[in-house]
Design a protein around this nucleic acid. Structure first.
Lengths: 241, 241
DNA sequence: CTATTATACCGACCAATGGTCTATTGCTCA
DNA sequence: TGAGCAATAGACCATTGGTCGGTATAATAG
């Protein structure tokens, strides 16, 4: 085989790209290392030059996800015009948007993130994302406590609950999407909307706010994104079976 | 090798017992099928006579856990003297007790359930347990809504949140126990107690109750169980390395 | 413009894994 | 007693994640 040398950073990104596509479509366990290196067009040796193990590849992928996610909210964090409640709402809306768009993308590929075999991948992503988001959330909650907007305690704990709510959408979607038919998508959308509304109220109360203070995006937003993405799926490179 | 024939149900239970011990100590992925059948003292063929795959073994194990868990609370469910709040409190205390005892047991074996490699196992158990518990919780919440004890909505959603809180203890413990030293256990205990208190208040507010209504066991209970178990570990058969 | 070194890369090889298959043993019941 | 079937054994298989010795290429020094 001809030897192809690329810039290490590019190679690494390519590897992550192909791993992402394969892990998302087949699941971390089912997608074999050989699949990944075949898709990336490199040798075993080359792969292990970049990552010490398959596990490390997963970890790196999760970190990249988290980094992208954090980059997506840095404007919100930096915006001095936002009060704690406003900032919290903006953060929640953003993270929800990202989650739904990811879901829509996976769905468009007729394979979904929300499958049991993707548990590991999803958990790693969420772990990394949480590690990034946690400080931001904690700080926001603490501010809200200080200026009297929120009436609660244990900012770290509350931040964890907020992120739990985020993670929980995984299982909600997973259950509804389980059998994968079109009708299920409608069910999933309904369930998601309802669940989001519940989380809003739950957060209101945990934070000691009047019901209706927390607003995670407009009603109907889920359906809009999902259906739009479905008819116009973005392209992710997928290896042949 | 001499051929040993046993009653199928006994064999199956034995298989589950050994699988449980190995999965708990080494993790689902790391514990190989060969380890399991070696521990159980049977052949490959015999194993695949009972389970169609390793995955199925995991599933069966999760179901057994769930069944045991449900059996443990049926007296609470059946008790007509309990009002919704009392029943909810009893259910929560019981499930927490079970979780902590499991944790203590795993800890006593110097290997803990709360490790990344046990994610899959833990998730499966929780999934099965949730499926069992959900109806009970939903019914309890619904009763509380009807008789005016609770001031909330979407019983299914709230029940899910309750179970989320249960699952979340996994990650809380996992983080604190990560490096596995003795000091970490103290930290883990503190974190757990604090977190339990947060969940109590969060549930109070979600259910529209005055703070302090929900009581998930006595303070200090976690430490008591953990330390007691540690000095007097129950025996689980473990295969040689 | 060489010589040297460091890095990116290749692919044969390995032990272990989950799973399949055929053959045999022992229980049950007619 | 013996036919039939459930239970068991274990050789075998393809695939998997991972290792290793080696090679080509780019960067650097002389």
């Amino acid at each position: 085989m001809p030897r192809i040398v690329k810039h290490p950073e590019l190679r690494r990104e390519e590897l992550l790209d192909h791993a992402q596509a394969l892990f998302l479509t087949h699941g971390y366990d089912k997608a074999s290392l050989n699949d990944v290196i075949a898709a990336a067009g490199i040798s075993k040796g080359a792969f292990y030059h970049y990552f010490p193990s398959k596990e490390a590849l997963l970890e790196a992928l999760a970190e990249r996800f988290a980094k992208q996610a954090l980059a997506g909210v840095e404007d919100i964090v930096a915006d001095p015009a936002l009060d704690p409640l406003g900032r919290l709402n903006a953060l929640l809306a953003k993270s929800r948007q990202a989650k739904i768009e990811t879901a829509a993308e996976a769905w468009a590929l007729f394979e979904t993130l929300f499958r049991p075999e993707n548990l590991v991948l999803f958990h790693r992503i969420n772990l990394a994302a949480s590690a990034s988001f946690s400080p931001v959330l904690v700080e926001t909650i603490r501010q809200g406590l200080e200026d009297g907007t929120f009436r609660t305690f244990d900012p770290e704990g509350v931040a964890d609950i907020v992120m739990q709510f985020g993670m929980a959408t995984h299982d909600v979607i997973a259950k509804a999407f389980a059998s994968g038919s079109d009708a299920d998508m409608e069910i999933a959308i309904e369930a998601l909307e309802k669940r989001v509304r519940l989380y809003e109220t739950a957060l209101d109360r945990i934070l000691g706010l009047p019901d209706g203070s927390i607003r995670i995006g407009e009603p109907g937003y889920v359906r809009a994104v999902m259906t739009a993405r479905r008819s116009n799926p973005s392209v992710i490179a997928v290896a042949p079976p």
